[in-house]
Design a protein around this nucleic acid. Structure first.
Lengths: 78, 78
DNA sequence: AAATATTTGTACGTATGTATG
DNA sequence: GCATACATACGTACAAATATT
């Protein structure tokens, strides 16, 4: 599902939703690393800040753990 | 020509231009290695990312070839 | 062979400036 | 003014490839 640049929701929330859907679908199981910010930039055609903001949404919600120099890792569901 | 931090052009483009000028002036002939990213950092007083970005400009243009663990080598003009 | 140093590659953290709605 | 979004730039950390000792 491509992101909608005209649409209502902010890009970073759309991407966050995509990531959530991917996690739920088992695309990235617990312990797996999410795509890097650079990969998200390329995948969605957004700036790094936007990619970061998306990942941060999941991090704040405790769904992933972000580690400097490594990446964002999926936490096992509680 | 020192780089201009206030100026219009982004630092990495200014440095890229400097490197191009050096190549054209024969400072680094074909096959020679450009200064390393660390050297560029020190020479221009910039961060590594900025030095990298400058070299990448030339690499994308096919003017140099970058090899991990070695450096950026000047290609002979076509 | 092994250890160390050099150099590029990748990745996140942070800050600032600009533009738009 | 504020939130969103892009671009630039510095900082930090670690991995991978290469070169040297």
């Amino acid at each position: 599902m491509p992101i909608d640049r005209e649409g209502a929701a902010p890009l970073y929330l759309q991407i966050a939703a995509e990531l959530r859907a991917g996690i739920k679908a088992g695309l990235w199981p617990a312990g797996r690393r999410l795509p890097s910010e650079t990969e998200l930039m390329n995948t969605y055609g957004v700036a790094r800040l936007t990619a970061r903001s998306a990942v941060r949404v999941l991090a704040r919600a405790g769904e992933v753990e972000v580690v400097q120099g490594r990446g964002a890792y999926v936490r096992r569901a509680a």
